[in-house]
Design a protein around this nucleic acid. Sequence first.
DNA 1: ACACGTCACTAAATCGGTTCAGTGGGCCTA
DNA 2: TAGGCCCACTGAACCGATTTAGTGACGTGT
Lengths: 306, 306
Amino acid sequence: MPKRATLRDVAAAAGVSPTTASFVLNDTPGQTIPEATRSRVHAAAAELAYVPHGVARALREGSSRVVLLDTADIPHGPSLEAFTAGLSSTLAEHGHTLLVHPAAGGDLARTIADVRPRAVIDLGTLYGPDATGTADGGWSTGLAAHTSRQIEHLATLGHRVIAFAIPEDPKAHRLAELRLRHAAEAAEAQGARLVPLALPSDDDQARAAAAALLRDHPDVTAAACYDDTLALRLLVAMHHEGRSAPDDLAVIGFDGGQAPAPWLTRLTTVTIDATEYGRRAAFAALGIDPGPRPSPVSQVTDGDTA
Amino acid sequence: MPKRATLRDVAAAAGVSPTTASFVLNDTPGQTIPEATRSRVHAAAAELAYVPHGVARALREGSSRVVLLDTADIPHGPSLEAFTAGLSSTLAEHGHTLLVHPAAGGDLARTIADVRPRAVIDLGTLYGPDATGTADGGWSTGLAAHTSRQIEHLATLGHRVIAFAIPEDPKAHRLAELRLRHAAEAAEAQGARLVPLALPSDDDQARAAAAALLRDHPDVTAAACYDDTLALRLLVAMHHEGRSAPDDLAVIGFDGGQAPAPWLTRLTTVTIDATEYGRRAAFAALGIDPGPRPSPVSQVTDGDTA
DNA sequence: ACACGTCACTAAATCGGTTCAGTGGGCCTA
DNA sequence: TAGGCCCACTGAACCGATTTAGTGACGTGT
């Protein structure tokens, strides 16, 4: 296999020094290079299929053109996927590369020492109670808006006492707590009351939890769920108890699309366009002004359950 | 913030040259260094919290201690997650780091030039028709074994004409084709016949596809599915057609756990322990002998649908 | 007493870029 | 015609590790 061409090779082929070649290829400001030379260098680079050696560049510049995304304990869902896609493609447009640090078995500090990324986007921390909330392109604050939308929809339908269903899975804990806080605020703003409901992943236990809710809080008329999977789980539990949505309890999901095809019924859910958040997170990571802020896009898709 | 300590700092603190410090910290073979010096260097490194600069090391060594995983179009599922976890932690044990290249909006060639990884594990290619099949720790050939298990289970129950349901989603196309091939081989070995069934994600279309199968192939008595999500989709479609499992059609899933809690019924499915494949893929990537090969672990979990 | 080997350690080159500090040469101005 | 400025370009330092090729000191065998 032919060895990669280096800057030195390109410079030699163009008949200039590596310095000049670097100036041309990077459009270094403050350098006056005649068009004739420029095109010679570009031609040579194209001819040799020159690709800059990211590692060498990173060593000199102090950090690589890589942005690290640590999804930590965040559950996968359609919105996280869209977020990642928006993030990745926007970074690429600006000459950077997104890499994802795997949640399991990875040591973030080690990875940072290995790669020296330009920025690290740590969703786990962003969802924590002490989040600064700027580096994620508004993603975590947008979450508040989307959660509000979920609660508002139920309030608009006349519900005054609303359950908020979260998974018991400890992996989702941080995000669940955050969502719960946002939901409580939204409920208060709507003059409604929120009742937390932790739903275990075990079928029978989930059924028991749902039964307990309906028994102990007869005034609850609706449930907003952490995500669509949890909404389905709640519907299943209700079914086993001989209850159905929306008559016994209106049910609304979140982050639509994660669950497989609905069963017998179309779930009412909130879908989020997270691509824009990814775009903005990219700008934040690179320290570029993202421009005027479009309002976060989320949409209630009506089904049969609310 | 205090700047990172470099090898030079450690060497100075220990009263030796950077060369010696490097020899000590890397246990370079063929060097005789007295214990007194060794401990001085180690003490200095600990004191200064020295962490080697991965980028500088990568420049010198020609490649970084990073392994890149490109999941390409592979759909997420529990087994992929386990695979990643096994891969990542095993690599970490050997001083390496796993990074995931995002499928959407990422340019693999660029990323490779940026990071110069020691190895790239490209599941998309491995699933392709021209796969060499060694770099993944047996993952893709293991897939064949697991698929066989799925078909064998149905054959053991007496089924002779078996549908194999795959999603229409083009993202899953490669893997679906591969699974289908394996399934056909397994069926032939069992003296059974396989009928492919493409199931669209749209509810109504899926229903139509299921109806067409039952009408056009009345001899089909069982369906093996691409994954659990697809199995659920099939169950839903059947329900809408007034059919149920296993009486009208036995249904078995794959890669159990991906779907949310089953609805009214417990899905029979094949679960895979993919962690071991991840471990072996790590060894393959690093060029280490993985040791004796344990048989691939997969397990049929009986439910009500087969 | 001299060659030879081992020990403990180091100077300097190297990886492939970026960037600081120049350096001639031509042109314009006082 | 001397001084200054801009143009077009280059040499060399630098980032932080690894690794090659030594170097002096000391011990041993003959």
